[in-house]
Design a protein around this nucleic acid. Structure first.
Length: 283
DNA sequence: ACGAGCGCCTGTCGGC
DNA sequence: TGCCGACAGGCGCTCG
């Protein structure tokens, strides 16, 4: 379930606690139970178990789609990939079917990493930059400006859709939010990045920020078996709405495959030709 | 530099 | 009913 807004929602829930579970902050780690070897990217299982034990969770953070837990000595980084989820459950609760890593905390609580498809990864590192260094800018940061996006777009000659999914270009967008941002910006997914006018780059900047903020405000999107109480799935404009009417113009939403990813767009609002570069509502 | 194809995994859904 | 392919919120790799 992970794009930036979903990871942020989980980070927030773990930090603030909820009706069912307390905050993880200031809790000490008693032990861990790794049941799928490849979930742990680094270090070795033996070193992981030895090193993490006794450390206290002192803070939480997020960078792109990575969740960051600041421990007494190290940082625990978590990437949920396609189906990962993190939750706090009572220690006496039996493990759920796809729990891959259980982190036993003091006080009768456990942090459970559940991941049906086993793509998720966890790193225990001294310096988060070991893992996070390649990431592009954080889209909601103040220093991510329309001018900076425009400049970066023109440093490449790539299709917009795969470029926005590239985490070294920009950190945090996934398939849903990319489709939604491109629709808000009225830009075709296959437009070449260096063909955008300054006004179009600004529209894209606006679209990216708007859709990410809306996702966070609605606690992310909850699809299929993963439910976090998010509701953004009820507000998708194009994602997963093939053949349904575009909320702007009523044209049937189209689906194509770009870079092996299903891509949803309005064939009327998001033209590939130069026609949309001077659309009337442009500012 | 860029894009396509595949692998990693499990589960669901629609068509026949 | 059962089987089979398509598809799913991600990303690392190879190849041309």
């Amino acid at each position: 379930m992970p794009e930036l807004p979903e990871v942020e929602t989980i980070r927030s829930a773990l930090t603030l606690g909820s009706r069912e579970a307390p905050s993880i902050l200031e809790r000490q780690i008693c032990s861990v139970n790794l049941s799928w070897e490849r979930t742990l990217a680094t270090p070795s299982r033996e070193e992981f178990e030895r090193r993490i034990q006794g450390q206290r969770i002192q803070g939480t953070g997020r960078r792109g789609k990575y969740l960051i837990l600041q421990l007494s000595q190290d940082f625990l980084l978590v990437h949920l990939r396609m189906s990962g989820d993190l939750s706090v459950v009572p220690t006496n609760k039996p493990p759920a079917p796809h729990d891959r890593l259980l982190i036993e905390l003091e006080g009768g609580w456990r942090l459970a990493f559940n991941d049906t498809r086993k793509f998720g990864r966890v790193w225990l590192v001294e310096d988060p930059q070991e893992v996070l260094a390649p990431l592009g800018p954080e889209p909601l940061d103040e220093d991510f400006t329309p001018a900076k996006l425009h400049e970066k777009l023109h440093a490449h000659k790539r299709q917009l859709k795969p470029l926005l999914l590239d985490q070294t270009f920009l950190a945090g967008l996934g398939n849903i939010y990319t489709d939604e941002a491109l629709h808000l910006a009225r830009l075709h997914p296959l437009r070449k990045s260096n063909s955008l006018s300054a006004a179009e780059s600004r529209r894209l900047w606006d679209g990216i920020r708007q859709v990410l903020k809306e996702g966070i405000r609605r606690n992310g999107a909850s699809i299929d078996w993963v439910y976090r109480g998010g509701e953004f799935q009820n507000y998708f404009r194009v994602y997963g709405r093939t053949e349904e009417p575009c909320p702007v113009c009523g044209t049937a939403i189209a689906r194509m495959v770009v870079g092996q990813r299903g891509t949803h767009y309005c064939p009327a609002c998001q033209l590939l030709t130069l026609g949309d570069e001077k659309s009337p509502s442009d500012e």
